[in-house]
Nucleic acid binder design. Sequence first.
DNA 1: ATTCTCATTTGACTTGTATCAAAGATTTTT
DNA 2: AAAAATCTTTGATACAAGTCAAATGAGAAT
Lengths: 220, 220
Amino acid sequence: MPVGFNADEMKKIDEVVEKRRRIKQGELLFSNGETFTSLYAIRTGFFKTCVTSADGREQVTGFQMAGEIIGMDGIVSDHHNCNAVALEDAEVCVMPFANVEDLSRELPSLQRHVHKIMSREIVRENGVMMLLGNMRAEERLAAFLLNLVQRLHARGLSQSELVLRMTREEIGSYLGLKLETVSRAFSKFSEDGIIEVKQRYVKIIAPEALKKIFNPQTCF
Amino acid sequence: MPVGFNADEMKKIDEVVEKRRRIKQGELLFSNGETFTSLYAIRTGFFKTCVTSADGREQVTGFQMAGEIIGMDGIVSDHHNCNAVALEDAEVCVMPFANVEDLSRELPSLQRHVHKIMSREIVRENGVMMLLGNMRAEERLAAFLLNLVQRLHARGLSQSELVLRMTREEIGSYLGLKLETVSRAFSKFSEDGIIEVKQRYVKIIAPEALKKIFNPQTCF
DNA sequence: ATTCTCATTTGACTTGTATCAAAGATTTTT
DNA sequence: AAAAATCTTTGATACAAGTCAAATGAGAAT
């Protein structure tokens, strides 16, 4: 939970948390169809959420890291509408949604916070729709890398180096590309001296070049 | 506002509405960057929401019809993050979000309702991501048509006939396709006897065939 | 009515990404 | 440490959708 709460509020918000739960790499935090009871605040670790079509095609809908809230897809139907898989060993705070709603009625600042988290997710997905609908492969990967380092940097990590927690296939699924296309785009960026890649390790050498690829109009 | 409220609650919910507002075809209900103050309940008419990339590419993120709520993208940053354009003359109820939050704290049923509306939008966008990331042109158009008639049918209209409120280009933008591709897919469906098309008018002759295209795994 | 504008359809051709395939690299298992 | 499994890279080729272009159709303006 970020700033904007006083000590008294923080104490109450702490009590929303029912317990902590550890999830091993590869295991599900929740799965499609499962009854919805709680939101989860990620303490440590890294998740992907994905939906599956009736014929088995998988679409990664997001990657979530420490400090982010996961599970809001379940509110509308009281059942989860996606799978949440730990990409590394993780720990989450289980926040029964009934507790969240009860306390939200008492604390306007928490109520506003919950609304913002959901709105942020809507806006993020709008951005992904733009990527998927209008951008070419290299633009998608540039946007993806910039978004990742930005979020990691906000958590005190480097803004130029990162270790990917997901496979090329998972990146591709998120970006609407095949893993080979993702790999080729990585190689291209590397050849052009924009990034340094070694497997999951990525170092961003020329962030402006990445931004320019993501945002071609800035080229004049 | 749908069912699930008693008379007393309905009366209070009515008072959330500040006023009504008419929007002419082609005009903006709100636009990207504008200060966020209110959610809007569509009484009549049809809207599209769209985001624009820095270099001017437009992505339609949704089509909204009577009975739906629009504007939740603005909560996170106090500014709207997309444009909402009326595709036909429309009327909306302006619901200042401060009023919504105040009353939500008083009425748990309204609070839950607001949460569900936002969660529904998140889940809808997950589905669009699946369309954009994994489906081919005809699958996307089939899904689009089925979704439209289903929503129109829920409003008491025909489940087989509809008049499109948007151009081929807008459909294409929503589905991540060019207008020519949309047109070709319409023609293909028409040749195959699945639908009857005449400009904006569409009649669904074989809904099962559409469902089969959207959902190829059901073919055994 | 006639003209003008905008939306739609259709054809011909191009292109970006997918597919198929094989070789390396890395990690896990035994 | 060797073997197995998984992930990644790279090349060759195929294909779905994009682009360009022209004709047609519908609605709005004069």
